[in-house]
Amino acid sequence: MDTLHHLPLAEIDPHALLRDRTQLDPEALAQLQLSIATEGLRLPIEVWQLSTPRDGFTHGLISGLRRLTACRELGHQTIPALLRTPASIPDAMAAMVSENENRSDISPWEKGTLILNTIEEGHFDTPDTAIAVLFPAVSRFTRARIRSHTMVVQALDGLLTAPHDFSTRQLDAIAAALTGGHEDLLIATLQPVARSGAETQWSTLQPVLMDIAREPTNPKTGRPRRMLQLRQGLTIRREPTPTGWVLRFSGPEAKKGGLVDDVLDRVEQWFQKG
């Protein structure tokens, strides 16, 4: 059964779940502060107990970001909070997601991250279960899309500098490549531009994704081969160009100048016989 508590503000993590990215309106926040200061807080916030306390936080915020912010700026030490039980958490989170969807556009990356956050906290067992509860009104196609974007977040989180700037179609293309078994290739492609902006990262990924879409890898033959990783510390990736192919060498072994000379010698032997 959900119970009402007065929790220390310092123990509530306002960012435990992703929510809309709109900035709090200063005027509306000032009016809310005045209302709380004169009449008290009429509606408690909603929280859940974190499975593992982190950074001093013991509870995560489900709804009530504006109320929480206003009370903090008023200098309150505690706040009335409805502690959701495992049985009621899914419905409370679904209501929060629905409210955010109506207020602003949540990026595909944020939706995938939200799904993974709820699973990590133990609220849902699988992405499919989380999506069904948090996004009950969407079509089967949209659910499958959110599931594929969740897979992208799981595989590439930390490599994309500004993942929120990637469009739905861009994440669709990345998800298709991951489904085809090319996670290592995408990671190797992104690593050299890990600190670049979204535009540079996409322009680096795009030819690789187009090549995968144009000629999927045959699961029986493993061809075409798009990457070779050797234990000696050498990675070779092929990349299509308008006029042919580029081979990109990376890793400690690639820094040795003689490597490229050896490759050129071998190619010369193949094509200049006799």
Rank of each mutant, 00 (worst) to 15 (best):
R66F: 09
H59D: 04
L50S: 01
S51A: 13
H59E: 01
T78E: 12
A92Y: 05
I79G: 00
A94E: 11
V47T: 04
D55A: 15
T52M: 13
I62H: 00
N117S: 07
L43N: 14
D55P: 06
H59N: 05
Q49C: 09
S51W: 06
D91L: 13
R66Q: 15
T69V: 10
N102M: 11
W48D: 01
S98I: 02
R66H: 14
R42W: 11
L82I: 13
I89C: 07
I79M: 01
P90Y: 05
S63N: 15
L74H: 03
L41S: 09
T58Q: 14
S98K: 11
E101L: 12
E39N: 14
L41H: 08
R66M: 12
R42I: 06
D91K: 12
E99Q: 11
A37D: 10
E110M: 13
S104F: 05
M93G: 04
Q77Y: 10
S98M: 08
V97R: 01
R66A: 15
A92I: 02
V97A: 06
L116P: 06
I89H: 05
I62Q: 00
S63G: 13
L68C: 12
N102Q: 13
L68P: 03
L74C: 02
Q49G: 08
N102E: 11
H76W: 15
T113P: 06
I106D: 04
L65A: 14
I45H: 03
A92R: 01
R72C: 06
T38P: 06
I62E: 00
L61Y: 04
E46W: 05
T58C: 13
I36R: 04
I79L: 09
L41Q: 12
I36Q: 07
L61T: 04
P108E: 05
T113S: 10
N102K: 13
G75I: 05
T118V: 15
L74G: 00
I45R: 04
L65W: 08
L114R: 07
V97E: 00
T58L: 14
L68S: 02
G75P: 06
G75N: 03
T78G: 09
P90M: 07
G75M: 02
K111M: 10
N102D: 11
R67P: 03
E99A: 14
G112S: 04
S104N: 11
W48L: 02
R67V: 08
C71M: 15
W109L: 01
T38E: 13
I106H: 03
L116R: 12
P86F: 07
R42S: 10
T58R: 15
T118S: 10
L61Q: 07
T85I: 04
I45G: 01
R84H: 11
L83W: 07
I45T: 05
L68R: 08
A95N: 07
E46C: 11
L61K: 03
D105M: 12
L41P: 06
R66Y: 11
G60N: 02
G56L: 13
I115V: 15
A70H: 02
L61F: 06
T113G: 11
R66L: 11
R103E: 13
V97L: 02
D55F: 14
V97D: 01
S35K: 10
N100Q: 10
W109M: 02
I106E: 04
D55H: 14
P108H: 06
G75K: 07
M93C: 14
L116E: 10
I45L: 12
R67E: 04
G64I: 04
L114D: 01
L116Y: 03
S88W: 00
E99C: 09
G112Q: 00
F57I: 09
S98W: 03
R54H: 13
